[in-house]
Nucleic acid binder design. Structure first.
Lengths: 181, 181
DNA sequence: TACGATACGGAGACCCCCGCCGTTTAGCAA
DNA sequence: TTGCTAAACGGCGGGGGTCTCCGTATCGTA
């Protein structure tokens, strides 16, 4: 990779992060190019489509969450371990503008990319779910949990305090909105 | 309302319904105008903004759900009554393309319109929630339930059988993903 | 230093949203 | 039936976005 390409890549990533934080997952690529001071062709060369850009922007965040999950494998209390992680994921999804939509989008694409955000989170979270299987409702999968979390994050995007609201909804779902009598 | 205006309104509504079923809540207004064989100004006159169009298109569906709720007020088993209604809402939100996004959008706008879709569903569902309060987790509101449902519907939009998947997730949330030990 | 590969910038084609305004037409009244 | 007027229509123009493509500038090496 040429030096100028590297510079532009880094610059674009930084600008994209700001712009997405400001305007959500469908921020204008054109605008990002303008702010970064490069031609629109350049952003498109580094990131062929919006999905690629989102993946790059959120890569670190996702990686952090995955590490968080791995740390919790083998903990003495599997239920607590899983719930802590789910809370962390929820907080990120609700706080980091655009992340929830990005996760939702690549669930749609059907995980053809093993290394997409949802794929990574699935892989990292699966052991936690397996460990906690005994205390989970039968049939619950890591995919279910991630779908629910992205859904909750999308639905609470507007709220004054999205993270708090999202976590509250998640807690309700975990313990049961209306447990059987 | 003039006769030609009435004709165009009806025609636009029909075309919009198809187009939204095909392309989701952000179908092209321009395209709708083309298919309906009217100028783009006409669609904009009848529906000043996208939200107005969505509201009109989904009005009947929402009204049906509200009636469904009113039917169930006063039933002997309040829990069953509420859950049946929640399932119905979930099925609609997951099946009718664009509805979930529309509901989500007007939760965002903050219900300044009392008669918007979410507002109507809130009003209709509130008695069911009140009735069932004794068997609900403390603090659960009708707004929470609707938010959760729209979130679930958004998250399962891609699934081969969205309604089944959405209802499954809802059931899990109702009985608890991992009820406390 | 010269050269080839690589990356850059932006023009062009296409689509969409939105506001505006000249023209047509429905429906009423004479 | 015939005029008339307000309401409704259609589409143009401006602004912006996406995506493709190609001539040009630049980097890194021989």
């Amino acid at each position: 990779m040429r030096a100028d390409a590297q510079r532009n890549y880094a610059r674009l990533l930084a600008v994209a992060e700001e712009e997405i934080a400001l305007n959500g997952a469908d921020a204008s690529l054109e605008q990002i190019a303008r702010v970064a001071g490069v031609g629109s062709g350049t952003v498109r060369r580094h990131f062929p489509n919006r999905h690629a850009l989102l993946a790059a922007v959120f890569r670190d965040h996702v990686e952090t969450l995955c590490a968080h999950a791995r740390d919790r494998v083998g903990r003495p209390d599997p239920r607590a371990a899983l719930l802590e992680w789910l809370n962390a994921v929820t907080t990120s999804a609700a706080t980091i503008r655009g992340l929830a939509m990005a996760l939702n989008r690549d669930q749609v694409t059907g995980d053809e990319h093993e290394h997409c955000a949802t794929g990574q989170l699935t892989e990292a979270g699966e052991p936690l779910v397996r460990q906690a299987a005994a205390v989970l409702a039968p049939g619950v999968t890591i995919a279910d949990l991630l779908a629910l979390i992205t859904g909750i994050a999308l639905a609470t995007e507007h709220h004054p305090d999205p993270a708090a609201e999202a976590n509250r909804l998640l807690s309700l779902a975990v313990t049961g909105l209306s447990p059987a009598p």
